[in-house]
Design a protein around this nucleic acid. Sequence first.
DNA 1: TTGAAAGCGCTAACAC
DNA 2: GTGTTAGCGCTTTCAA
Lengths: 357, 357
Amino acid sequence: MNAVEFPNIKPRQRSRRGTQRTTMLDVAKLADVSPSTVSLYLRKPEAVSDKLRDKVRQAIETLHYVPNRLAGSLAAAKSRTIAVIIPTISNSFFARSVEAMQEVAEKAGYNLLLGNSDFNPEREEELVRTFLEWSPAAMVLTGCHQNERTIGMLKAAGIPVGQMWELGTPHLGLQVGFDHTDLGQSALEHLYEGGCKHVVYLGVRLNCDHRARVRADAYVEAVKAAGLHAPLVINIPPTTEHLVQGAGTAIASALAANKSIDGVICSNDWLALGVLFEAQRRGIRVPERLSVIGYGDLDFAECSNPPLTTIRPHRWQIGSQLMQGLIERCEAPQEAWPDHAVDVGFELIPRATTRIM
Amino acid sequence: MNAVEFPNIKPRQRSRRGTQRTTMLDVAKLADVSPSTVSLYLRKPEAVSDKLRDKVRQAIETLHYVPNRLAGSLAAAKSRTIAVIIPTISNSFFARSVEAMQEVAEKAGYNLLLGNSDFNPEREEELVRTFLEWSPAAMVLTGCHQNERTIGMLKAAGIPVGQMWELGTPHLGLQVGFDHTDLGQSALEHLYEGGCKHVVYLGVRLNCDHRARVRADAYVEAVKAAGLHAPLVINIPPTTEHLVQGAGTAIASALAANKSIDGVICSNDWLALGVLFEAQRRGIRVPERLSVIGYGDLDFAECSNPPLTTIRPHRWQIGSQLMQGLIERCEAPQEAWPDHAVDVGFELIPRATTRIM
DNA sequence: TTGAAAGCGCTAACAC
DNA sequence: GTGTTAGCGCTTTCAA
């Protein structure tokens, strides 16, 4: 049996499945203008007459109107979100770049969708696929070791793509980074110039961190070219929790196996710190008996004992320049997106863990 | 003069402002089913018959169809994005929690929109406002020092809200964190128990980092209660780039001003490291002459010289538990969102920079 | 189990 | 400068 049917008392309370949310229409009604005027006001306030501008502003305020970006982006077929994929957040190298990107993006009215790939191309692919569903205005990737499918999706998406921290192929649009081969060579040269006769390379995750791998490879080639000794790359097992510890252990056993080692290039400052701690523990004099060079110029590098010689990447600059360029592209026609690479370089900071002769 | 006008050859190439993008309609046509069947397939594949399921799957594959989440979220009046606001990314404390949240969120099919407030309530407010425009499914904040307007917006939004790293008021929904007052007291107690007679507190950004401030205040109260000496809170000027350095300088001058100081509680392990470096430089024996306790249990704490006594917050757990709870709330009716606080505690790790008697 | 149809809240082309 | 109107691509009743 049917219950007594009330006629629709409320004359269609905002449609079949209304959300009660304050909409642009509500604002328009209150301000006594058309919805498109409200829309225009929101996008180009200067194109609205003073009188209406005031009315609209006031209506928005009294209603606490919050525009729905979902609807806006859908209608405009473009969003103001930029997707960023980094290997890991817990790494101040990338974190600083992300922070820089946030700052730049926000000023231009963009939001960041963040994901971490954990140095895994398949996860990167998955993230790109998911992020693309949000119609981002642009996409930022770390390095240039994307797989085929990722590249394909990105090409098909037709949005500006940025790659940071590395220069090379495949080139997906805008690159901001520096030459890791150059960096690896510079580190070795610095140690040789300081009088080292036998330099080893200490790294972690060399199998998945492509950039560290490139630096290590550069070291190997440069050692071969110099011909003073055989190259040795030590890859610390990635028990991430005890990275610093691992470096100490690794260098200790290398030193035990080969007494002639007198220089270490570390894949990052954390490892270098571990080496320094170990040297201290064993009474190995740094830099006389063992020279150490790091990478990153992290906070502690300047005041460790002794202060660490290291190589400083321009972490902030990488992020801000890339985002700047990307946003420009977002607001320019696609024809104005030539492939472009910006080499921001790096800086070798000689301190007290290496000798200068 | 008008050019020769061609009649509309292409019969309305997907509407006035079509985006050429492959849509659900394209898939439906190819699979020879209705759009709603495709939609259903995407959301509940098991509700579609085997035959149609296959046809749809195949059509999606051949067309490389990527659903448009913007449209989906708009139509459904809910999205699968969760907004996260942290003070700063370049801080492995929060970074680890974010990583944990990412992992949990992703498994459940959610994406993270990230923003950093830089410890500034006004920036936080601005971020909340912006993020709300995206109709997030939930919102995560750090700590519980939101301003009135932020709280108002959040209440009005009617979405699950999470607060991490701190327990207290205002309570906006789900809190996962620990008691910083307890932590401050524990640190002091530990030093007193080790025989310290005069303990100072070393911090940074105490004016904006509420949690560090709470720990410092707890120290002050506990010192007063013990009555052995006057409390002293040193607030390092926030020249962030040389945090470790700053700690060394600060402790050096404190020690010079008052020779009786024999213990330091550091607001984080970085500062503690700076103190350790400084002690080494000046030949101050740790822990005999000066005991040091940090906070964070960062990577290097275990293998510094001497290994650092510190307090470990459960960074990963905070993120994963909070996200877990939030997602549950997203999928439950609003009535099932009682205010709830989870105290995950912390762990004091005694190592070699403090004495145990 | 499947399909038709009516929006979700907004933008943008166009006319006035 | 302002309003009218037709979608953006999807979800979700509702009826078959």
